[in-house]
């Protein structure tokens, strides 16, 4: 456990040794804040006056913040593959994986350490995004329950992106190929969602398999254990595949 944590903190720190993590965080924050401004502007000028007479008008949380969290998920479809591409692919390319493989570590420790390092990054991303709703507390009251479930949902969604990216990174020694393939996989799940929802041939199975169908309830403040189980299975599944891949490399590579 100690060593998992050692690998995780080192991986996390190393992310910030290159400009990549810094620029990702900066750009993400910039774009999301801009979107927040647009959503908020629309809410104040159009939606709020129009719905003011309703008995139970939709609040700022569901009109402004939920789309913000949804968009974060969409943007991270592109960003997470870039963050995870290096995990194993770059180590293979630079032949540094040997360091971990010849240290007294199990493949499980290596994989979990790397995954946890990315999870730290995800927590940082969520912490920074959470600053945006905090800005609203100056002028209004928020539905903290929804913000909490949204953050939880985002955490699970991004962790599942990371697990898939980690696995794909373990398959190749080219970071770029890892990034493109993980992006392809994640996009494929989005396409499943779209095709499952398309008119005429909607499919419950496709919707169930896709990421976003399990993310959306969180944004409405609904915490469903079946969604939690979906993400847990997804993450554990890909982590086990990565561990198997590392073990297999020693056997066949």
């Amino acid at each position: 456990m100690d060593k998992i944590f050692t690998i995780a903190t080192t991986e996390f720190k190393r992310l910030f040794n290159s400009p990549l993590a810094w620029s990702v965080l900066a750009i993400l924050q910039f774009i999301l804040t801009l979107m927040f401004l647009i959503f908020l502007d629309a809410f104040i000028t159009d939606i709020q006056p129009a719905t003011a007479t309703m008995e139970n008008p939709p609040g700022v949380t569901s009109i402004v913040l939920s789309p913000l969290y949804l968009w974060t998920g969409v943007i991270m479809l592109v960003i997470m593959p870039i963050m995870t591409m290096r995990l194993f692919a770059e180590e293979r390319m630079n032949k540094t994986l040997t360091l971990l493989l010849s240290s007294p570590l199990s493949s499980t420790q290596i994989v979990l350490g790397k995954f946890l390092g990315i999870v730290f990054f995800i927590l940082l991303v969520i912490a920074m995004i959470s600053l945006i709703p905090l800005a609203l507390t100056i002028g209004t009251t928020l539905d903290w329950g929804v913000i909490f479930t949204s953050s939880l949902g985002l955490f699970l969604l991004l962790s599942s992106f990371a697990a898939a990216g980690l696995f794909i990174s373990s398959l190749t020694s080219q970071p770029i190929i890892a990034a493109i393939s993980s992006f392809g996989l994640l996009l494929f799940l989005v396409v499943l969602y779209l095709s499952g929802n398309s008119q005429g041939n909607s499919s419950e199975v496709f919707i169930y398999l896709s990421h976003f169908s399990h993310y959306l309830p969180f944004l409405d403040g609904v915490f469903d254990t079946s969604d939690l189980v979906y993400y847990a299975l997804f993450i554990v599944g890909f982590l086990i595949l990565s561990i198997r891949k590392l073990d297999n490399d020693r056997l066949l590579g």
């Binding site: 190393r14 040794n17 290159s18 630079n94 032949k95 540094t96 040997t98 010849s102 007294p104 199990s106």
Partner: peptide
């Protein structure tokens, strides 16, 4: 493997060093 690897120090052909540290 974990026990056995404690007795070994290994320098492969290409040193496994993280260049950004």
């Amino acid at each position: 493997p974990k026990q056995a690897k404690k007795s070994i120090g290994y320098l492969p052909e290409q040193p496994p060093i993280y260049r950004d540290m």
